[in-house]
């Protein structure tokens, strides 16, 4: 009885400590975000003359209207969404297959191939950019969103490595049992590994979505026609070496960030479902 009570006490106090800590940590992460939102409502004069003041006075909601009307917002948004969804599809397709093979199959040359996979990430983009560009050009993809989407169907070392780490945690006996039942490897991947790895897949989808959403340098290199440019490009128009329009930049950055909140909520439901399924089967 006694020890049990103590244990309960101990639990609640550490629970409370955990809760206080998480609120504090979140506050620290949120402060720059709050600053961003507040700045997006300031007048340019306030930013110039009192850069360290917190509260916008007066509130300038027009920043948002001006930021949106400064660019073909809808066109950029559509381009961005095409880019995001296309590359998420490509990434999930190519990376899941390769990751499963690296994690769960034993075929000759696997370890060598995996070492090569890691090595492909080690050379800085500065020296590989030009030849890669010329290749994409030769493939006839220059100046189309395809230049950015097609390569995602050919795998991405980062996500393959990440998914491999997740597949590694699937209990080997579940896979062996399926094999004994005569299931094909694709069948095992589809029916056993993928459902178990749903949180990981949601993670990869989210990360690739965000990466494509934020990608700015890539589109600028591979696209020429402003009709094809994504939202991230629209954001840069407020920046200049001598005359950055900080109020509009911040308003655009807030608008730019908001849709990701939706994507995150969506992906998060998948994490939770992942926990539930694993819990039932595990």
């Amino acid at each position: 009885m006694k020890s049990n009570a103590m244990n309960d006490n101990h639990e609640t106090s550490s629970n409370i400590a955990g809760k206080v800590l998480v609120v504090l940590a979140t506050a620290l992460f949120a402060i720059p975000l709050v600053w961003m939102v507040l700045t997006s409502l300031k007048t340019p004069e306030q930013i110039a003359n009192a850069p360290y003041s917190w509260w916008p006075s007066p509130l300038r909601w027009e920043n948002y209207r001006e930021a949106v009307s400064a660019m073909p917002f809808l066109r950029y948004l559509v381009n961005t969404l095409v880019l995001c969804l296309g590359s998420v599809a490509g990434t999930l397709f190519s990376c899941t297959l390769a990751a499963y093979a690296f994690a769960r199959l034993r075929f000759p040359g696997r370890n060598l191939l995996f070492a090569v996979l890691i090595a492909t990430m080690l050379l800085p983009w500065q020296v590989t950019m030009a030849p890669r560009f010329l290749l994409i050009r030769e493939l006839g993809l220059y100046d189309s969103l395809g230049a950015l989407i097609a390569p995602t169907f050919l795998g991405n070392a980062f996500y393959i490595f990440l998914l491999r780490q997740f597949f590694l945690t699937i209990p080997q006996d579940m896979i062996e049992a399926a094999r004994m039942d005569g299931a094909s490897e694709l069948g095992i991947l589809w029916r056993i590994a993928l459902p178990l790895a749903r949180p990981a897949l949601a993670t990869v989808a989210l990360l690739q979505f965000v990466a494509a959403w934020n990608n700015y340098g890539g589109p600028l290199l591979y696209l020429n026609d402003p009709q094809h440019f994504p939202l991230a490009y629209g954001l840069e128009r407020f920046v200049s070496s001598h005359s950055t329009q900080t109020h509009l930049l911040m308003a655009a950055a807030v608008l730019f960030t908001l849709p990701i909140v939706a994507a995150f909520f969506l992906a998060q439901r998948l994490f939770l479902r992942g926990i539930a399924t694993t819990g039932l089967k595990g």
Partner: peptide
């Protein structure tokens, strides 16, 4: 610096 050059510190404080 370039980016904080968004505000002119002669004026700021």
């Amino acid at each position: 610096q370039a980016l904080t050059g968004t505000s002119f510190l002669m004026l700021a404080d």
